[in-house]
C-alpha cells in the first residue's frame, strides 16, 4: 500500500524486478537490459542518422537508468521512464552534431489543391494486405523518410506510431502538452505521406 495516498502510483509489470535490483540484486539489471535492448536500439535507429549513434544512445540510456533506478518512484511506468531517458539522450546527441536545424512543418504546405489531382477513387493498394506491400525497399524508403523529418516531429511520430505510446504517454515522455503531440503528429504523418507519394501512386 502506498504510504502517501495522494501520490499516484501505477501498476507496473517491471515493478518486481526493479524492487529486487534496488534491494541489492544488481545483476538482475541485465534482465531489464535484455527485455528492452532491442526496442531501444530500434528506437535509436529511427532517431539517429548513424547506427553507431543508436548504439551509443542505448548504452547511455542504460547507464543512466542504472544510476537513477533507486530514485524511480513508480509515478510513471518503468517503460515510459526508460523512453523519457532515451528520448533525452537522442536529443542531446543531436544537439552535439554541427547542424541540427529545427525546421517547422506547416499544415498549409500539405493542404491538397486542385492541381495536385487527388484520385477520384481508391487505388488498388488500399485493399492490399500490409505484409504483402511492406517489402525491404519500401521499409528502407520509410526509414529514410522518417529520418528526414525535423527532430521534434520525428520523435513524436516514432513514439506514437512505431513505439505505440498514446498521446498522453508521449506528452509525459517529452514533457510537452498533449495538444502539441497531436499537432506535431499530424504534420509528421502528412510529411511522411507526401514522401511516400510515389508508392501510393504505383501501389507497390
Amino acid at each position: 500500500m502506498p504510504k502517501n495516498p495522494e501520490r499516484r502510483t501505477i501498476i507496473d509489470e517491471d515493478a518486481g524486478l526493479i524492487k529486487a535490483i534496488n534491494s541489492g540484486r544488481k545483476t538482475l539489471f541485465y534482465d531489464l537490459v535484455k527485455k528492452y535492448e532491442q526496442k531501444l536500439y530500434n528506437f535509436g535507429l529511427r532517431m539517429c542518422n548513424e547506427p553507431r549513434d543508436a548504439e551509443d544512445m542505448v548504452q547511455d540510456t542504460f547507464l543512466n537508468v542504472y544510476k537513477y533506478l533507486a530514485d524511480f518512484r513508480y509515478e510513471a511506468s518503468f517503460k515510459n521512464w526508460l523512453y523519457r531517458i532515451a528520448s533525452f539522450a537522442c536529443i542531446k546527441k543531436k544537439r552535439k552534431s554541427k547542424f541540427a536545424p529545427q525546421k517547422e512543418i506547416s499544415l498549409e504546405d500539405f493542404i491538397p489543391e486542385d492541381k495536385e489531382n487527388i484520385p477520384d477513387s481508391l487505388p488498388d493498394w488500399a485493399s492490399e494486405p500490409l505484409e504483402k506491400v511492406l517489402n525491404d525497399e519500401l521499409s528502407e524508403n520509410i526509414r529514410k523518410s522518417i529520418l528526414s523529418l525535423p527532430e521534434k516531429y520525428r520523435i513524436v511520430l516514432v513514439l506514437r506510431d512505431i513505439e505505440g505510446f498514446d498521446t498522453k504517454e508521449t506528452a509525459q515522455i517529452l514533457n510537452i502538452k498533449p495538444a502539441n503531440v497531436k499537432v506535431r503528429l499530424h504534420r509528421a504523418r502528412l510529411f511522411l505521406k507526401e514522401k511516400l507519394k510515389g508508392y501510393f501512386k504505383d501501389g507497390s
Binding site: 544488481k26 545483476t27 539489471f29 541485465y30 537490459v33 535492448e37 532491442q38 526496442k39 536500439y41 530500434n42 535507429l45 547506427p51 548504439e55 542505448v58 548504452q59 542504460f62 547507464l63 542504472y66 493498394w125 488500399a126 500490409l130 505484409e131 511492406l134 519500401l138 521499409s139 520509410i142 526509414r143 522518417i146 511520430l157 506510431d161 512505431i162 505505440g164 504523418r189 502528412l190 511522411l192 505521406k193 511516400l196 501510393f200
Partner: peptide, 28 residues
C-alpha cells in the same frame, strides 16, 4: 494517411548488433 500510419506501425525490428549486446553485458 491511414496507410502511412499502418506502414510505420508494422516496420520490422532489426536485431541488436553482437558488439552492443556484449558491451551491455559487460556493463552489468
Amino acid at each position: 494517411l491511414r496507410r502511412t500510419v499502418d506502414l510505420c506501425s508494422n516496420m520490422k525490428m532489426l536485431r541488436v548488433p553482437d558488439r552492443l549486446r556484449e558491451q551491455l553485458k559487460l556493463m552489468v
